[in-house]
Simulated scan of single mutants.
Amino acid sequence: MRWLLVFLLVFLIFNRAGVWLQKFGLGRLPGDVRLRLFGRELFLPFASSVVLAVMASVIMMVF
């Protein structure tokens, strides 16, 4: 249940800050999906969310 919440938060962050995060290379990984539906762009960052989750877990282990 906790991982589902983490993935939901990552999806929300990516959809809101996608342009800013692309400057750091996130959002352009091979597992990220962009869809255009009815004039709107939907971004599903599967690979980038895994990378961010691993980074967050490493940071939590250090502290």
Results as ranks from 00 to 15, higher is better:
34 R>L: 02
6 V>A: 14
23 K>S: 09
38 F>K: 06
38 F>A: 15
14 F>R: 00
63 F>A: 13
55 M>K: 10
40 R>S: 05
10 V>C: 15
45 P>N: 04
26 L>N: 02
14 F>H: 05
5 L>P: 06
41 E>H: 02
55 M>E: 10
33 V>Y: 05
31 G>L: 07
55 M>C: 12
36 R>E: 13
44 L>C: 07
60 M>K: 13
20 W>F: 05
24 F>E: 06
3 W>D: 11
44 L>M: 13
55 M>F: 08
11 F>G: 12
36 R>A: 11
15 N>R: 07
51 V>K: 09
22 Q>F: 03
57 S>P: 01
41 E>V: 00
42 L>D: 01
8 L>E: 10
20 W>H: 08
40 R>A: 09
61 M>L: 15
36 R>S: 15
8 L>I: 13
2 R>Q: 15
9 L>G: 13
44 L>R: 08
21 L>C: 06
1 M>R: 14
11 F>E: 08
10 V>K: 01
20 W>V: 14
61 M>Q: 11
12 L>D: 02
22 Q>A: 13
46 F>M: 07
15 N>K: 05
6 V>I: 14
24 F>P: 03
46 F>T: 10
9 L>Y: 05
61 M>D: 13
15 N>E: 09
50 V>Q: 07
54 V>S: 15
60 M>I: 10
19 V>I: 12
1 M>K: 10
9 L>R: 09
58 V>K: 09
58 V>C: 08
18 G>A: 07
14 F>D: 01
59 I>G: 08
13 I>K: 05
12 L>N: 09
41 E>T: 03
43 F>D: 00
6 V>P: 02
16 R>E: 06
37 L>E: 04
18 G>V: 00
6 V>E: 12
42 L>F: 14
56 A>P: 02
53 A>S: 15
31 G>K: 11
15 N>S: 08
24 F>G: 04
34 R>Q: 11
3 W>N: 12
7 F>N: 02
55 M>T: 08
25 G>H: 02
42 L>R: 06
59 I>K: 12
30 P>N: 01
34 R>Y: 08
15 N>W: 00
22 Q>L: 13
30 P>V: 08
41 E>S: 06
45 P>A: 13
43 F>N: 00
59 I>L: 10
22 Q>Y: 07
33 V>W: 04
47 A>V: 06
51 V>R: 06
8 L>S: 14
55 M>W: 07
30 P>G: 07
22 Q>D: 13
44 L>Q: 03
26 L>A: 02
43 F>G: 00
18 G>K: 02
21 L>N: 01
12 L>V: 13
60 M>L: 14
42 L>T: 03
7 F>T: 04
18 G>R: 11
63 F>R: 11
32 D>G: 10
46 F>A: 14
53 A>G: 11
42 L>E: 06
49 S>F: 04
38 F>H: 08
42 L>C: 05
56 A>G: 11
14 F>E: 00
41 E>K: 00
6 V>H: 07
